[in-house]
Simulated scan of single mutants.
Amino acid sequence: MAKTFHLEIIATDRIFFSGEVEHLVITAIDGLIGILAGHEPLVTSLPTGELKYLVDGEWKYAAISEGFIQVMPDSSIILADTCELPEEIDIKRAQEARERAEERLRQKQSIKEYYETQAALNRAMNRLKISQKHFK
């Protein structure tokens, strides 16, 4: 059996996951990070993206929005705005959110509004990508 470490994924509305995992792969600001038991300590911010973790030999996938990760040799904690399994994603709602964001991007906006709209579009596109890629 592979070495494991404790992973906690905490979203603003719930504890998404808490348990032992063999491997974690997550998109960080600098690119993909793979984490195994015994990883060097690390703290970094996370953009909207995909996360996958290996539990008992089976990969689990999730769509995650902005957050942070703290990695220690025997545990990792992810704090994120949202985290959803592919089967939890409401595809119609995500498509509507994408359309609203695309429409707002076509309008004249302040810099702040532009970045907020771009973030909303990124979240919607990520949710659609993850649901189409992993939900059968």
Rank of each mutant, 00 (worst) to 15 (best):
M1E: 12
M1S: 12
M1P: 06
K3H: 12
K3F: 08
F5Y: 13
H6D: 14
L7A: 01
L7N: 03
E8H: 09
E8K: 14
I9E: 04
I10S: 03
T12D: 14
R14Q: 14
I15E: 15
I15V: 14
F16Y: 11
S18V: 02
G19K: 08
E20L: 14
E20S: 13
V21M: 09
E22C: 04
H23E: 15
H23A: 08
L24H: 04
V25A: 08
V25G: 02
V25H: 06
I26E: 07
I26G: 01
I26S: 03
T27W: 01
A28Q: 07
G31E: 11
L32G: 02
G34W: 02
I35V: 15
I35G: 04
L36S: 12
A37N: 14
G38C: 05
E40Q: 13
E40K: 10
P41L: 05
V43M: 15
V43S: 10
T44L: 01
S45M: 11
L46N: 07
T48E: 09
L51G: 06
L51K: 00
K52S: 12
K52R: 15
K52N: 11
K52A: 01
L54W: 05
L54Q: 13
E58T: 11
W59S: 04
K60M: 05
K60A: 06
Y61M: 07
A62Q: 02
A63L: 09
I64H: 05
I64K: 08
G67K: 01
G67V: 03
F68W: 11
F68D: 12
F68V: 08
I69P: 03
V71G: 00
S75R: 15
S76E: 11
S76R: 03
S76A: 15
I77N: 14
I77V: 15
I78F: 06
L79E: 08
A80I: 07
A80N: 04
T82E: 13
C83I: 01
L85I: 00
P86A: 02
P86V: 02
E87F: 08
E87N: 12
E88Y: 00
I89W: 02
D90Q: 02
A94M: 04
Q95E: 15
Q95V: 00
R98M: 13
E102L: 11
E103W: 01
R104T: 04
R106H: 08
R106T: 14
R106E: 14
Q107L: 11
K108D: 09
E113R: 05
Y115I: 00
Y115T: 04
E116F: 07
T117I: 00
T117A: 03
N122E: 14
R123L: 02
A124L: 07
A124F: 03
N126G: 05
R127Y: 05
L128V: 06
L128W: 05
K129F: 08
I130K: 08
I130S: 10
K133N: 13
K136Q: 13
